[in-house]
Nucleic acid binder design. Structure first.
Lengths: 325, 325
DNA sequence: GCCGGCTTTGTAATCGATTACATCGCACTC
DNA sequence: GAGTGCGATGTAATCGATTACAAAGCCGGC
């Protein structure tokens, strides 16, 4: 019984007679034999592993997506490596995980990498083994799965306007991220469309963390002339904001309406339950992973390159209401 | 210039003359050469990768720990593979990741695996390449990093007793997990020590999710004879509980005090800010990873096997108060 | 001049799975 | 019975890094 035969039983059973196939299968079971993935990877020039690169894994927003990614990849035989907080030098990080044959594909949640660099990734089946998720690389040659951030932001502002608000502020995220920029743009556009003024002093700069939302809320509470509603670029900042203003005796939604973005698990159970734009996070994780694995396995994509924009959904809860009379 | 020399420059530079070392280093830089980890893994019989096995990656409790794990492992050259939701057959999962040489070590957050099976893992430097975190395998031969769950639960209950509560309920987690069981035991012990009755109808069965806490809160709100304080086995359930009772016009902490467990990021910013037992999650992640990598690299451990119990800290916020008069 | 000891570098075997190619055996046909 | 074709299996090369061992070069001492 040669190694070749065993290999054939495992990879292409139809090329082996039924008798030997059963003998081998039985022996595999008996000895508890498991394939050596290192040897396989070396020979096949493929590791059956993908890397997911996120700015901050501790953020529940990303961890939910990771959950979906692993759930999608595991049944197809792929492992998921986590690269957290891309350091100052993304090149080093790419070397460590990608060029050193640790992984075949890349799920990128932080598009602050050099496009030039990424363009030179070795192609797989003529395609870049890379999908950018929840963020955007401007060049259209990259595969991408994201949501309609700008349009969703406009709908969020529209919701506030529809409630009767005319004085609307914004807690925005860091400008380095394109998605945040899009949300900022959407805010701007809809304010303009509604004929409302974007006041500089009602723009709070945050960094997606609860604490930065809290800080924004404190600044808000100390103002003399306040907006009656605030659009926060994510739920964490919205919650931090509400938490802070409540400490100053300001009630949400009675005194100020707050709308968030993402619909994290907590949003529904916060006090007050948070009005927000729901991102289909499960879909973001699953569809991007599916696309990446299809690239790696030479399965045709729906489009080439793959560009998918999912739609966010307005979820009205109790943190928004008409402005005080 | 032979491949052997290049390999030596990279792994043990002192065995190569300075002249060639520099020539090789320069050539490596110029060609952008990167080591092939698959080949290295095959030859060295080590992948420089560890697996982290968690019940539910979407839970922010775990994702914060994952963050710490990756942060600790990356600088030591180790990759982190994520295995989510161990399926019905943990054996299959162990085969896929561990025995197939995809990973060298195992960080296990769910001790519902068969101890017998785990005992037969191939030893590395005479030690099991396995650390159980936040959960407990009873057999003392396993390496373990956890917190003083039972004692911390006693302190939580003690806090409620000190505030004057005599009627105390419990939202508990699934009994399959040892850590949950410990918290349950701690609750029981301290109730007993304080001479208080553990009433069956005040025990709410949850599953660590917000929703199960919410369900518990609803059942609580509909009761005629209620406890004045509740100890929830984790913060998610505590928050779900408060969220539910508030919907029934029951105020926390005026009508009912609630104490949680973990101190997730949200706890501080919830309304009311949550009193809770803080788990040193960063330490849990870092110390367990450090121990596992030391095992893999033959570095001596502080103890053999490695058993570390970290201390939880009572964080008093606004969700607990003396009982209503 | 010769030898031992030392550093430096090259040679070749090795890790385990895959796969092109060769070989073997069997059945079927003329 | 020789030849043809096909399916099943074995043989050996391959992937790229590591490392035991060999070899070569160099130095100094006697």
């Amino acid at each position: 019984m040669s190694a070749a035969t065993v290999s054939r039983v495992l990879s292409s059973p139809e090329r082996v007679s039924e008798a030997t196939r059963e003998r081998v299968t039985e022996a595999v079971r008996a000895t508890g034999y498991t394939i050596n993935q290192a040897a396989r990877s070396l020979r096949m020039r493929a590791t059956r592993t993908i890397v997911i690169a996120v700015p901050n894994m501790g953020n529940p927003y990303y961890s939910t997506i990771l959950d979906a990614v692993v759930t999608e990849a595991a049944p197809r035989g792929y492992g998921v490596l986590v690269a957290n907080r891309l350091g100052d030098d993304p090149t080093e990080w790419l070397r460590d995980y990608f060029f050193s044959n640790r992984a075949d594909g890349l799920l990128l949640f932080d598009a602050s990498l050099d496009e030039e660099e990424l363009s030179h990734l070795p192609l797989v089946h003529g395609r870049l083994p890379l999908v950018v998720v929840c963020d955007e690389l401007l060049a259209p040659r990259f595969n991408m799965v994201t949501t309609d951030n700008a349009a969703a932001s406009r709908r969020a502002v529209r919701h506030l306007v529809d409630l009767g608000h005319r004085r609307i502020g914004n807690v925005r995220g860091r400008q380095v991220k394109n998605l945040t920029n899009e949300r900022w743009l959407g805010f701007h556009e809809e304010m303009h469309a509604a004929g409302l003024e974007v006041r500089e002093d009602w723009i709070f700069q945050g960094d997606h963390s609860i604490d930065s939302g809290y800080e924004a809320g404190r600044r808000f509470a100390r103002m003399r002339d306040r907006p009656t509603a605030v659009f926060a670029a994510n739920d964490e900042m919205a919650i931090g904001f509400i938490s802070a203003v409540q400490g100053y005796g300001i009630s949400c939604p009675r005194d100020v309406s707050v709308i968030g973005f993402d619909d994290i698990t907590m949003a529904k159970h916060y006090t007050p339950p948070l009005t927000t734009m729901r991102q289909p996070r499960d879909q973001l994780g699953r569809r991007s992973t599916e696309a990446l694995l299809n690239i790696l396995e030479g399965v045709p994509l729906e489009s080439e390159p793959f560009r998918l924009v999912l739609t966010c959904e307005l979820v009205v809860r109790a943190s928004t209401a008409p402005p005080p009379a």
